[in-house]
């Protein structure tokens, strides 16, 4: 919709992220999971799909350490990822324990 403006005129405005900002991981509590994800990227020629398990593990770590709001996996698009994906809310540890 250009409303009389040239049709190439872009009215796009950046929006803040849906769930706000990650709190800073000052202690480096989830650094291991991050390094695992990055090395996975390196092994798979930077394709993100094979490393979805690692990204899920990382976010799981953040949720466990209180560095991120607990969220349904399906809201983060990681619903069908990994062995522990039951789609239930909560963390891996909670479901296993």
């Amino acid at each position: 919709m250009s409303f009389g403006r040239p049709p190439t005129f872009s009215t796009f405005q950046p929006n803040p992220p849906d769930r706000g900002a990650f709190p800073l991981d000052h202690e480096g509590e989830c650094k291991d999971q991050m390094m695992r994800y990055l090395s996975c990227l390196k092994l798979n020629s930077n394709s993100s799909t094979p490393c979805r398990v690692e990204s899920k593990t990382y976010l799981d770590c953040r949720m466990n350490k209180g560095l991120m709001q607990k969220e349904d996996w399906k809201n983060l698009g990681l619903n069908n990822v990994g062995p522990e994906s039951t789609g239930a809310k909560g963390t891996v540890e909670e479901r296993e324990g």
Binding site: P17, D18, R19, G20, A21, F22, L24, L76
Partner: peptide, 11 residues
């Protein structure tokens, strides 16, 4: 689209 990032807020 970003689900969550470090932008828009003070760090």
């Amino acid at each position: 689209a970003k689900v969550e990032c470090f932008c828009f807020e003070e760090q």
